[in-house]
Computed example of a mutant assay.
Amino acid sequence: MHKLGAVSRRPRPEVHVPRQFPLRRLPREAGTARGARTRLRSTAAVCTTMSALAATSLITAPSVAEPFSPEPCALQRTDVHHSEGLDTWNAAYPRPARALDAVMVFLSFPDSQPLTAPAELAADHFPATGDFFRRASYGAFTLRPHPLRDWIRMPSPSTSYAIRRDWSPEHRAAYLRDALAAADPHVDFSRYDVVYFVADPDAPGVDSDATKVVNLDTPMRADGTDIRRVVTVFENHPPDRLVLAHETGHVFDLPDLYHRPVDGKGDWDTHVGDWDLMGSQFGLAPDLFGWHKWKLGWLQPRQVACVRGGEPTRLTLEPLGAGPGVVVTG
């Protein structure tokens, strides 16, 4: 029998690891300093531009002239982690405007014999994750999974890593260090844009609430390439719905949009509800905000209308099913 837990509506967190992250035993290159970025506009300006934005993939008309140019609504990117600014792209992240390759490494432990084959765990997440991004990007982005066929044995028992949602830096460092060392003989990491470390869901030390993205200011180094972030997957089999799509959104510089209650028992959906996958992956039809699609390069300038001034403005939105240029009546 597989270990099945109750499905949790709690979104998965993301971890930012400061430069003193203890992975110094691994060879690496010195990280480059982040360039200075422009400051965020005033709160009033942010509220004005956000409320004035009508960003949607449904607008298929030709480019509109001023005052509908999208530039005034394009918030400037700041030094804030996962800034919502989109005037420039943060080159530390892969931009999903082309096909990207993702490796899935399946990790077993000495204290547990896996009950599930790697192919079964891969099928838990693909093609569903790839299908989500293909639909959300209107075919502009393809995520190509490359799951390993066999388990990779970790050197220590699963319980030794003290895996949990709020993971200690020391145990997290040990886990990543051991996982990379164990996988490196079997994986050419230079071939991949995204790295998933998938733990045996039946191992006694695996906490299914601990899935997250780990960001590294000091990247790990393998096969001549820097690994700046890793998606650590600790899901049950079967997993929470679209959990990997949510975590992969962080790999593309998207922030969490949910509200985490202080006691962990309140309403997690206060901010955006089910309107964006980064707020909740459990919506009836989860998708990404038009703003995020604009940021990721999936919306063109002609598909974004920035409405300014106090005069009434009429915009025509076309349903996706109609197709571009089709006149919709009724």
Rank of each mutant, 00 (worst) to 15 (best):
P13D: 10
E14Q: 08
E14K: 03
H16S: 08
H16G: 09
V17Y: 08
P18V: 05
R19G: 10
Q20W: 06
Q20F: 06
F21H: 04
L23A: 10
R25I: 09
R25G: 12
L26E: 04
L26H: 07
L26N: 09
P27W: 11
P27Q: 14
E29M: 12
G31M: 10
G31K: 11
G31T: 15
T32N: 14
T32P: 02
T32E: 14
A33E: 14
A33P: 06
R34M: 06
G35E: 15
A36Y: 05
R37Y: 07
R37N: 07
L40V: 08
R41A: 15
R41V: 12
S42R: 11
S42Y: 00
S42M: 05
T43S: 14
T43Y: 05
T43M: 10
A44M: 14
A44K: 14
A45T: 12
A45R: 15
A45W: 12
V46S: 11
C47G: 15
C47Q: 14
T48S: 13
T48A: 15
M50K: 13
M50W: 04
S51G: 15
S51T: 13
S51C: 14
A52P: 01
A55L: 08
A55M: 07
S57T: 02
L58R: 03
L58Y: 00
I59G: 00
I59C: 00
T60I: 02
A61S: 09
A61K: 02
P62G: 05
P62V: 05
P62K: 06
S63A: 15
S63F: 06
V64K: 06
V64Y: 03
A65V: 09
E66S: 12
E66D: 04
E66V: 09
S69D: 09
S69H: 08
P70A: 04
E71I: 05
E71A: 07
E71Y: 02
E71L: 05
E71F: 04
E71H: 03
C73T: 01
C73P: 00
C73I: 01
A74S: 08
A74W: 00
